[in-house]
Simulated scan of single mutants.
Amino acid sequence: MAVRCARGAALILVHGFRGDHHGLDRIAREIAIARPDVRTIVPDLPGFGETPAIPGREHTIETYGAWLRAFAAEVAPEGFAILGHSFGSLVVSAAIAGGLDASRIILINPISAPALEGPKAALTQLAIGYYRAAELLPERAARQLLGNPLIVRGMSEVMAKTGDPELRAWIHGQHAQYFSTFSDPSTLLQAFRASVSHTVLEYAAAFGRPTLLIAGERDDITELSAQLELKHRIPGAQLRIIPGTGHLVHYEAVEDAVAFIAEFLVETARSNERAA
């Protein structure tokens, strides 16, 4: 877990599938610089990074949501805003539907379209087969398959949209270093199933706080039409679209994302002051 700024209003950031807190480190660091009054907290989800899997529990989206509610109550009992990227957007949404009372909600590259339907369904089924194959293998062989450098690099090449060779190399390095820090193949498969079995749209009715959506124009996971639908389903939600960027806004467009987030935090704070 990474914490920046020991005091101040808390902002909890929830990372995406197969990553850990390092994935949102640049966002958290830049927010802390832009808004020194904000205390950013980036945990590792159960089964990833330094957080062990939850014993005896299937890692469903509801399980992750319950874990996030308990975590937030422990680290920020005085209140907090919440941010989720990709799979983290589903975890945040499930937590909100279960009673998480965040003052403000920020979703980066939210999962707003069903992965098991539409033009990407075949690729999703292929990925499920990949994780199932790994689950059937002995632990060492499964880790070798799941952490295969060529497969990880291929995924990274497809997801990255930037033409900057230095930035692309850094992104590939981040995936190579942190994309395989999961606790075990079985938990990873459970998390993957959770990631492709839900969308934020399912939970939109539970959103009762100011909400900011940040999307990449070239996102391969969720098209802009689905992000627009999500915006309309969440009353008062703001949608900011970053041109030329895909699903890796947290790597490729940190400056833009932080500017949108800082502006949103200031605007909503002022609105709260006027309401009071």
Rank of each mutant, 00 (worst) to 15 (best):
G47A: 11
G47W: 06
G47H: 06
G47Q: 09
F48N: 14
F48Y: 15
F48D: 14
F48V: 01
F48A: 14
G49P: 12
G49A: 05
E50K: 14
E50Q: 14
E50M: 13
E50I: 14
E50H: 13
E50C: 12
T51Q: 13
T51R: 06
T51N: 10
T51A: 13
P52W: 01
P52A: 04
P52Y: 01
P52S: 04
A53V: 14
A53L: 14
I54F: 01
I54L: 15
P55G: 02
P55I: 09
P55F: 00
R57D: 03
R57A: 06
R57Y: 01
R57W: 00
R57I: 02
R57P: 00
E58V: 11
E58H: 07
E58D: 08
E58I: 07
E58K: 09
E58T: 13
H59T: 03
H59P: 07
H59E: 03
T60N: 01
T60V: 00
I61K: 05
I61Q: 10
I61W: 06
I61N: 09
I61V: 14
I61R: 09
E62L: 09
E62V: 11
E62H: 10
E62Q: 13
T63F: 04
T63K: 06
T63A: 15
T63H: 04
T63Q: 13
T63R: 10
T63V: 09
T63C: 15
Y64A: 09
Y64I: 02
G65N: 01
G65P: 06
G65F: 08
G65E: 04
A66F: 00
A66Q: 10
A66R: 15
A66V: 03
A66W: 00
W67I: 12
W67S: 12
W67E: 08
L68Q: 09
L68T: 08
L68K: 10
L68H: 10
L68F: 04
R69S: 08
R69A: 09
R69L: 07
R69T: 12
R69E: 04
A70L: 02
A70W: 00
A70I: 02
A70T: 13
A70K: 09
F71G: 05
F71A: 00
F71D: 04
A72N: 12
A73P: 01
A73K: 12
E74S: 13
E74Y: 00
V75G: 01
V75I: 08
V75T: 02
V75M: 01
V75A: 04
A76H: 11
A76N: 08
A76Y: 12
P77M: 08
P77L: 02
P77W: 13
P77S: 05
P77I: 06
E78F: 03
E78Q: 15
E78P: 03
E78L: 05
E78Y: 04
G79Y: 11
G79M: 10
F80T: 11
F80K: 08
F80H: 09
F80A: 10
F80D: 05
A81L: 07
A81N: 12
A81K: 07
A81T: 05
I82V: 15
I82Y: 07
I82P: 11
L83A: 15
L83E: 12
L83P: 04
L83I: 06
L83W: 01
G84W: 12
G84H: 13
G84D: 11
G84Q: 12
G84M: 13
H85K: 06
H85Q: 14
S86V: 07
S86D: 15
S86C: 14
S86L: 09
S86Q: 10
